[in-house]
Design a protein around this nucleic acid. Structure first.
Length: 261
DNA sequence: AACGTGAGCAACCGCTCCCTC
DNA sequence: AGAGGGAGCGGTTGCTCACGT
């Protein structure tokens, strides 16, 4: 059957996401959930196709994403699961809470593959000649910090283990509102949010057990030091990272507190 | 200090699956 | 029953950064 393209190419933006777009997407999903990805961008006022929004959310903006290096244990798990599942990255991802299929896929191709079969070239994907983007997007301005969009703020060393970070996740009591700082309106993942669209979260979390840590990007993990402190705790030592997330969260309209930082 | 190269990763593409009508 | 459409998945691409020369 002939399918319509997922999005009209005309007028829709491609390439890296800007902090402002992230902000809009996060704010929208906070309020409405992501019932219909195809309709979402239009309703949210984003010049993106639904697929792109979904991908951005699933791989990057979702609250339970665990970022940072893969631990030894995680790598071993991936290798073992890959033997069982093959390239079914999403299946593997379900066994690794907080990790996305895309991330696992990348790790496999860049690191693990050569461990398993050292004879294979380290970079299976052939490199292409570089070409300047025709669409210079400023998602990663130098001042927003490295590692690109600054979302690496959750990066932790393997020793620290991202698992540790999200291990609060194993406590189901953290589900939904409880991860917030007692329901303060200032918290991004506040109960208010849950109230706004609890089904959204429940659906998301019930899909698999990774849910546990419902803190939105981890911001609410510690019950309530200042947001700045929280960001520090999360490894956002880089002020650029903070700036980025401050913009995102403030744009989402729920953290007046942040403005005090 | 400048340049070249490779690694890492975010994002896109196109296909398949699955649900609805 | 099957056509249509949306969501999800895996493969691939291309940009950025780090590092070596």
């Amino acid at each position: 059957m002939v399918r319509a393209p997922c999005c009209e190419k005309m007028g829709l933006k491609r390439g890296s996401w800007t902090p402002e777009e992230d902000q809009i997407l996060v704010a929208y999903i906070r309020q409405h959930g992501h019932g219909n990805w195809r309709a979402l961008p239009k309703q949210a006022g984003l010049l993106r196709c639904g697929k792109s929004c979904r991908l951005r959310w699933v791989n990057y903006l979702r609250p339970d994403i665990k970022r940072g290096n893969f631990t030894k244990e995680e790598e071993e798990t991936i290798i073992r699961l890959h033997e069982d599942y093959g390239n079914r990255w999403s299946a593997i991802a379900t066994k690794l809470p907080g990790r996305t299929d895309n991330e696992i896929k990348n790790v496999w191709h860049t690191h693990l593959k050569k461990l398993v079969s050292p004879s294979m070239p380290s970079t299976p994907v052939k490199k292409k000649t570089k070409k300047k983007s025709s669409e210079p997007i400023t998602t990663m301005p130098p001042d927003t910090g490295s590692e690109n969009t600054g979302c690496r703020f959750m990066s932790v060393s393997p020793e620290q283990s991202p698992c540790d970070f999200s291990s609060c996740a194993t406590d189901s009591s953290t589900e939904s509102g409880e991860i917030s700082d007692g329901g303060k309106e200032g918290s991004f993942c506040s109960e208010k949010f849950s109230e706004i669209d609890e089904s959204f979260w429940l659906e998301e979390w019930s899909m698999d057990d990774r849910a546990a840590s419902v803190s939105f990007t981890g911001l609410a993990i510690p019950p309530s030091p200042s947001i700045g402190e929280q960001l520090d705790l999360l490894g956002a030592s880089d002020s650029g990272d903070k700036d980025f997330w401050l913009r995102v969260f403030m744009g989402a309209g729920d953290l007046q507190e942040l403005s005090q930082i």
